[in-house]
Design a protein around this nucleic acid. Sequence first.
RNA 1: GCCUCCAUAGCUCAGUUGGUUAGAGCGACGGACUGUUAAUCCGCAGGUCCCAGGUUCAAGUCCUGGUGGGGGCGCCA
Length: 506
Amino acid sequence: MKRYIQDLSTCIGEEVTLQGWVYNKRESKALIFLILRDGSGIVQCIIAQDDIGENSFAEVSSLGLESSVRITGKVVEDTRQHGGVELHVNAVEVIQNVADYPISKKEHGIEFLMDNRHLWLRSRRQWAIMRVRNTIIFAIHRFFQKEGFVQMDAPIFTGNACEGTTDLFETDFYGRPAYLSQSGQLYGEAMAMAMGKIYTFGPTFRSEKSKTRRHLSEFWMIEPEMAYYDIFDNMDLIEDFIKAVVQAVLAENKDELEILERDVEALEKACGEFIRLNYDDAVAIIKGEKDVDGKTTIETLKADIADREAEKSELEADIEERQALLDKGGMKKGKVAYHQSTIDKNKQRIKQIEEDLRNLPQWIESAENFKYGSDFGGSDETVLTRMFDVPVMVYDWPHAVKAFYLKRNPEHPEFARGVDLLAPEGYGEIVGGGERETNEEWLKEKIIEHELPMSEFEWYLDLRRFGSVPHAGFGLGLERLVAWICKLSHVRETIPFPRMYGRLEP
RNA sequence: GCCUCCAUAGCUCAGUUGGUUAGAGCGACGGACUGUUAAUCCGCAGGUCCCAGGUUCAAGUCCUGGUGGGGGCGCCA
């Protein structure tokens, strides 16, 4: 029977054989502490020379990181260890002895790690992120299946740019130009008319040359579409859905969130009632005309700048102090190394702060000069959501800045019934959706206005000719949701092999 | 596409107003140590200072142009 590390706490006292890789190793003359990982978890293995013999001990002693091994030993309770158990080894079978594994236990830069993504996935933090991603994916299916949705997927090859706005990846489809799908939504509408409630779950492609923490060229999107739903039904669903997913992660990934040093309390708070703002109210808050709990965005941003500047001078003083100690000399080697590494860390932090100090004034300017009627920029979203500790839904957008298929508010036709869900802690848009236009004539007008080829949309217009009903839906960017839940600084760590501007390998 | 910061050992970085033989930590390698948690300690090896021009008696350092990367904006999920 195959045994996995995650199950060891249930077999204390038993002898088991584990198959895995050497995650880390510490050794002394006749004792080796080998940290074994097998994909399900990690466990410390105690290998004593007396227990496995001189030859085997010498072989284990020579193992490099990520060597593959089969280890047999007795499971012993040890509360000092993370999983509460360790393995007292009596036999080690070496499958492969590895030399010079490129990723060490120390710090690495992002470019090096991305070049070694195929190996980086083995490290603890990446392992935790992928486990959370898996929980999220499963929770998404569980939620929709329980709510009576049917998964039906949209095609990936499309003959036209369905929204006509963004840059698409062009491919050759038997001699015809075809594009990789940037959204399955229009197809989702057709499928919802067949099934009532559907959701698509698949890859989506955008060829914008974006270089920010929230963009990928290839990402996974979940797009539910519901017949007989209006904008408010839609918002209720979004809220229930996001809460269900966050709660699943809180319940199932305690260890992973701890590895990621995620502030769990912030996630728990985010499961409170979501804020719903129409465009006008959201704009007033962004511009600093309206306060939230007695504070305006501009004040908050200025306070941020002051905090950063204070932190910077503190760090500079600390560096100077340590440098003076080092210059005086006569310090032990370990102490010298400690001070030097602290100085380096402080310098790194100062670099980050300086970057923030370059960006924050731009954000203030963008917020103060926000032009009523335009769409929110990345910084506007960040500025707005940092005022709340729950997600914010902004609805009823100026129709001119939103997609052609959104329904106009019948009472205020200058607004379209779109809704964006902005995640807290500065993460910004993770969901975009809305109620769809059902009036065939208005839709045609919009298609002409957006200079889209009418012939390509005949099938879409058919949906308004044959049993047209109010309907709504939304698209969720999986990687952005993972980034927020794990509190990562960039979406590139949320997908096994990210595809983005300048990154096609590995 | 625009703005901005950066590129020095396998990795992470330091390198002062341009000046002798370019440094540290980690990793690798050799050694010491029976309870370590990024173990520690001693020793040893390791360099096309991103590339191409230029200024200068002298360039890792200054200038110009590339290439690659980080962050932000636009666009978006």
